[in-house]
Amino acid sequence: MATTLPVKIEFSLPEGWQPAPPDEVGAPGVAFIALHPESRDGFTANITIAGKLYEETDLVSMADASVQRLGEAATVRVAERKEVGNAEAPALAQTLRISTSLHGRLLELVQSQVYLLMQDVHDPTRRAVIELVLTAKPTQLDLVVEDFKDFVRSLRPADPSAG
């Protein structure tokens, strides 16, 4: 079942990406998914957004938990992990190499994950972690990685005057 985000955000979706209903495309538990139809090659590159309120906001622990969760159904290797953002908007980025199967066939994927710590502009005492994820086959990555970077850069808290 699709979820809602604990804080309101705004973002720009790069050209060529199409929003899809999370439940209809097999992405339960995310609040938003966009597909890149041009990249379709046995797997469609996608961007997802999920988020939760947390009392503890240790981004490294959250990234570790993601690796562990994915590792329950696939072979996962952390290829890169680095702190990004700044003191006002801390973030952590990691790149995962994933080996799994889809319809009985081996599938190699790359997942770029970005964890952003955000405050709700309507209630600054509420802190949430927003998880942005690009999932693609290695052969699709060059086509979509710059779009993902643009997407991440476009994300911001929603304008509180917008309602």
Rank of each mutant, 00 (worst) to 15 (best):
S99K: 04
G104L: 02
Q119K: 08
L107W: 00
E108G: 00
A74N: 03
Q94D: 12
E55Q: 13
Q119R: 07
E83I: 06
T95W: 02
I47A: 06
V145L: 02
V133D: 02
Q113E: 13
P138C: 00
L109P: 00
V144Y: 03
L106Y: 03
D123V: 12
V67L: 09
S66E: 14
D64A: 13
V60C: 11
G85I: 09
L141S: 02
A79Y: 00
S99R: 04
T57K: 14
S99A: 01
L102V: 05
D142L: 05
Q111T: 01
R105H: 04
A93W: 01
T48K: 14
E80G: 08
R69A: 13
A73E: 14
N46H: 08
L92Q: 06
V145T: 04
L96I: 01
T95F: 00
P138W: 00
Q113A: 10
N46K: 05
G85E: 14
D142V: 05
T125V: 15
M118Y: 07
R126L: 08
Q119M: 03
A73S: 14
I47S: 09
R126H: 11
R77D: 11
I49F: 02
T75L: 05
N46C: 03
Q68H: 15
D120K: 06
G85Q: 13
A74K: 01
L134K: 04
E72L: 15
V67W: 08
N86T: 06
E80D: 12
L106P: 14
R97Q: 01
L117N: 10
E72A: 15
N46W: 01
R127S: 10
M118T: 06
L102P: 13
A93E: 09
V84R: 11
Q94V: 02
G71I: 10
K52G: 13
I47Q: 11
I49H: 07
V121P: 13
M62I: 13
R81D: 06
A63F: 08
A79H: 02
Q113Y: 06
P124C: 04
V110Y: 02
A93Q: 10
S101R: 02
A91D: 07
N86K: 11
A93H: 04
A91T: 07
V144K: 05
N86E: 11
V129P: 07
Q113D: 09
A63C: 14
R105V: 00
T139N: 05
L141P: 01
D147R: 11
K82M: 11
L141E: 05
R126P: 14
L92I: 09
V133M: 11
L116F: 09
R81Y: 12
L116D: 07
Q119V: 04
V121C: 06
A91Y: 07
V78P: 14
I49D: 00
M118Q: 10
S112L: 07
E146N: 10
Q94I: 02
P124E: 04
G85K: 11
S66M: 15
E56D: 15
R127M: 08
A65R: 15
E55W: 10
L106R: 09
T125E: 12
R69K: 15
H103A: 14
E80C: 06
E80M: 09
P90R: 03
D120S: 06
L109F: 03
V114T: 07
A87D: 06
P138H: 00
G104T: 03
V144F: 03
K82Y: 10
S112D: 15
T95L: 03
T125H: 12
S101F: 00
A89D: 08
L92D: 01
V145G: 01
Y54T: 11
